[in-house]
Simulated assay, not measured.
Amino acid sequence: MITEKIQYLFPKLSEDSYGPTSVFQIGKQMRIPIYFQAGFFNIKVDRNYTLETQIFNERNEPLVKTKRSLFISTQTAVNEMKVSNEIVKSSKFVFSVNSIIESTLILKSNLNEAYNYCVIINLSLNNQVLDTSKTYFSISPKIGGQQ
């Protein structure tokens, strides 16, 4: 039996962008918002999942940690999928969810060294981790101007 899974995870430039980004170019900013698109498979309705996101630098030092909930009600599923309550409540109903997660990365020094990062996301239910996924991105100085 397939339990709930993280289908994909990738960093992107903004909440509205659709494609993955592997390198972010910045000027002298000390804070940079990083968005992540994540997809979840086999999510069950009326369960309160927890999404925990952590960002590590290349020395494996933790920099950012966030927690938030992922909850899909039966009514939301019925309205989105246009199917009956009975089908949504059945054990065979499969629901796929896309979610946008935002973290703010605070840069603590000038961009004079490589900035490579790893993002790890955990999908949990009742304090038990169901699935984990990770992805990588880099931050480099903006070439040809200041921001």
Rank of each mutant, 00 (worst) to 15 (best):
Tyr49Pro: 11
Lys67Leu: 15
Ser73Phe: 08
Phe40His: 02
Lys28Ser: 11
Phe41Thr: 10
Thr132Leu: 00
Lys92Asn: 14
Pro62Trp: 06
Leu111Pro: 02
Lys92Glu: 15
Phe40Ser: 02
Thr74Met: 10
Gly144Leu: 08
Arg59Val: 04
Phe41Val: 05
Leu13Ile: 12
Asp131Gly: 02
Tyr18Thr: 13
Asn42Arg: 08
Gln37Thr: 12
Glu86Val: 11
Thr135Tyr: 01
Arg59Pro: 00
Thr132Asn: 04
Leu13Phe: 13
Val97Ala: 07
Ile87Val: 11
Ser14Arg: 07
Ser133Val: 09
Lys134Ile: 01
Leu70Glu: 08
Thr135Trp: 01
Arg47Ile: 12
Val23Met: 12
Lys142Asn: 06
Leu123Lys: 01
Gln29Ala: 10
Gln7Trp: 01
Ser84Arg: 10
Tyr35Trp: 15
Ile6Glu: 02
Pro141Lys: 04
Asn127Ser: 15
Gln7Ser: 14
Gln75Asp: 15
Gly144Ala: 12
Pro11Gln: 05
Ile72Tyr: 08
Thr53Asp: 05
Met1His: 13
Ala77Asn: 11
Thr74Gln: 11
Leu105Asn: 03
Ser138Thr: 06
Thr132Trp: 01
Ile55Glu: 03
Asn112Phe: 13
Tyr18Phe: 15
Leu111Lys: 14
Asn122Asp: 15
Val94Tyr: 12
Tyr49Lys: 09
Asn98Arg: 07
Glu61Lys: 12
Leu51Arg: 04
Gln29Gly: 06
Ser103Trp: 01
Phe41Gly: 09
Ile139Phe: 05
Asn126Gly: 07
Met1Lys: 10
Asp131Met: 03
Leu107Glu: 03
Ile55Lys: 08
Phe36Ile: 00
Leu70Cys: 08
Ala38His: 00
Ala38Ser: 09
Tyr49Asn: 11
Leu107Met: 03
Asn85Thr: 11
Gly144Pro: 00
Ser91Pro: 04
Asp46Leu: 07
Glu86Gln: 14
Lys142Arg: 08
Val45Tyr: 04
Gly27Val: 06
Val119Gly: 01
Lys28Asp: 09
Val94Cys: 09
Thr53Cys: 05
Ala77Thr: 07
Asn42Pro: 07
Lys92Arg: 14
Gln128Arg: 10
Ser17Trp: 05
Gln146Thr: 11
Leu13Met: 14
Ser140Cys: 03
Leu51Asn: 11
Phe40Thr: 02
Ile106Cys: 07
Arg68Gln: 15
Tyr136Asn: 06
Arg31Ala: 14
Lys28Met: 06
Met1Gln: 09
Ile72Thr: 10
Lys108Ala: 14
Tyr136Ile: 04
Gln147Ala: 10
Ala114Pro: 00
Pro20Gly: 15
Gln146Trp: 07
Phe137Tyr: 06
Thr104Met: 10
Asn48Val: 04
Thr76Tyr: 12
Gly27Pro: 05
Glu61Pro: 01
Lys142His: 04
Ile43Cys: 09
Phe10Lys: 07
Val88Trp: 04
Tyr117Met: 02
Tyr117Ile: 02
Ser90Gly: 08
Phe24Arg: 03
Asp131Ile: 03
Ile120His: 06
Ile139Arg: 03
Glu102Trp: 07
Leu105Thr: 02
Ser90His: 06
Phe10Ser: 07
